[in-house]
Computed example of a mutant assay.
Amino acid sequence: MSTEHHPQDIAVRFTAARAAGQSLPAYPGTLPATLAEAYATQAAAIARWPDAVAGWKVARVNPAFATQFPEERLIGPAFAPNVHRVAAGGTATCPVFEGGFAAVEAEVVIVVAQDAPAGKADWTADTVLPFVKSMHIGVEVASSPLATLNDLGPGAVISDFGNNWGVVVGAEIANWRELETIDVETFIDGQSVGTGKVAIKPGPLGALAFTLNKRAQQGTILKAGDVISTGMITGVHDIRAGQQSRHVFAGAGEVNVRITKAGAAAA
């Protein structure tokens, strides 16, 4: 194994595994040691993937890694075929990589209202309101060909599409401007696996601000219609093909997800 970090080589291995619907036995190279290395690998993988980026997942950086990766959050791309919009009472069908990492996370999803101005990278939770077209209850389906991806830390997670393989956009939270918090509970196969409370301003709005700033720093922008999955609320819940999850947002509805096995991508 190389003693150096080669973004292109790692991107080739991860994207090939994803395209084939296969797992990986180990991280395919030397782990990224910095945010710059991790995002360089992510960019190389995005360039190799044929689908358009339709949004971004956002997650907190584990405090245990804060010194090495000194940003409060991280982002990863959500590709157009992996954005699933479901009506109230509907169920999204989402694939995961058998033998890899697979989890569901209840999240608030923001749809971006307008293209961001280029180069502006000082957004805050107080200034991003013009970019919120709508706010929705939703789910991130996190999945990677590498089962240990999350355990390896933010560098690994960032490098492999942020560990994202689905964003489920559920019913709109029409009154989100009047809410301070929403209580949320996640069930898998009918069993409660986690509860939590999301605070709208520091949570979803803070995640949107971070994403606007990060993309500006990367030399590009968020675009109207992009979806932003803003971070887990009830926890990261392991799941496998054949299982179903239900995510209940008090006063706002629920989102249902059916998990299937990822197969080879269409040619």
Rank of each mutant, 00 (worst) to 15 (best):
P204M: 11
V169A: 10
A267N: 13
F161E: 12
K214M: 08
D238W: 03
P25C: 11
V12M: 00
G153S: 02
L129G: 00
T67K: 06
P117F: 09
G166E: 07
P202R: 10
H136Y: 14
A36L: 10
G203Y: 11
I46S: 01
E180Y: 02
I158A: 07
R48N: 03
V193P: 13
N62K: 06
P95L: 09
A199Y: 07
A113V: 11
V169Y: 02
R60Q: 08
Q217S: 14
D189C: 15
A106P: 15
F187K: 14
T211W: 05
I233P: 09
E180R: 14
A66I: 07
T93I: 12
V108Y: 00
A106R: 14
R177T: 14
K57R: 07
F210R: 03
H247Y: 08
S143Y: 02
E140C: 01
A250N: 12
A33N: 15
A264G: 11
V227P: 00
P77V: 11
D51L: 01
S245Y: 06
L208K: 05
A116D: 10
W56P: 00
V257Q: 04
P63Y: 03
Q244W: 02
I259D: 05
M1N: 06
H136E: 15
A33L: 14
L208T: 07
V86W: 02
E71T: 10
A262N: 03
Q244M: 10
L74G: 04
A199P: 00
T260N: 00
K120V: 15
L74D: 02
V53M: 08
L74M: 14
T67Y: 02
A33W: 07
P7H: 01
P77Y: 09
H84R: 13
V132Q: 03
A241I: 09
P28N: 10
A59D: 03
P95R: 10
V198N: 01
T15V: 08
Q244K: 12
A26S: 07
N256E: 08
N175T: 13
P28K: 09
P117C: 06
Y39D: 05
D189A: 15
A36T: 14
L205Y: 07
S245V: 08
I233D: 09
E37D: 12
G235I: 06
T124W: 01
P77T: 04
V227T: 01
R48Y: 03
S192I: 04
L205H: 10
P25F: 08
G153I: 01
V112K: 03
G76Y: 01
R240P: 00
I75F: 05
E140F: 00
T30V: 13
I10Q: 09
P50R: 11
I110E: 06
F249E: 04
I228W: 09
E254W: 02
R258P: 00
Q22W: 01
D189Q: 13
F65G: 00
I182P: 13
A121H: 14
P202K: 11
G194E: 08
S144L: 09
A16W: 00
Q68P: 02
